[in-house]
Amino acid sequence: MEAVINMVLLTLLVVVTLGVVRLRNLFAVVILGSIYSFLMASVFIVLDAVDVAMTEASVGAGISTVLMLTVLSMTRVEEAKPAHSPLLPLFVASATAAILIYGTWDLPGFGLAQTPVNTHVGAAYLERSIADTGVPNVVTSVLASYRGFDTLGETAVVFTAGIGVLLLLRRGRSRARLKKRQEERT
């Protein structure tokens, strides 16, 4: 069943990507981008990586969509016809894909017990996590307890970035208000 769900989701991802490439209306492309993120998040859920799925949904479908829309409000909605031929970008993308696929040949098998990922500290975390932290989900215990300071730092960075974006958006607003007031005076 999981294989079927995965196949359908991945096929839909390809279809949505083709739609993004073909469409010229950038507003529709932004919406398709958010759909892509939701589909990708579902793929992560089927792969049992719920935390990654949450990040994908919040960053991909949430923040990215809002940022793209902000950019869209500063430019035109219809995409211009490209002046150059698509052959060179197509070649570069295909070559990169070929190199990446070639790179996967050297990866160890999925879930293999002898890989470095599974032979170092991972086993110790799995064994001691409940006794040490009392959190049933090992990923959560690693993120929030063993690497708590790391996560705290990340949160501070993300919070600062959020404040920065808010300040930038506010600046545009106060400028618009100022302009409006000046127009009212004259």
Binding site: I31, I35, F38, L39, S42
Partner: peptide, 14 residues
């Protein structure tokens, strides 16, 4: 509306 419904679908699928 399709995008919004796909978001709901993702919840249900989860």
């Amino acid at each position: 509306v399709a995008a919004n419904s796909i978001g709901t679908e993702a919840i249900l699928l989860l």
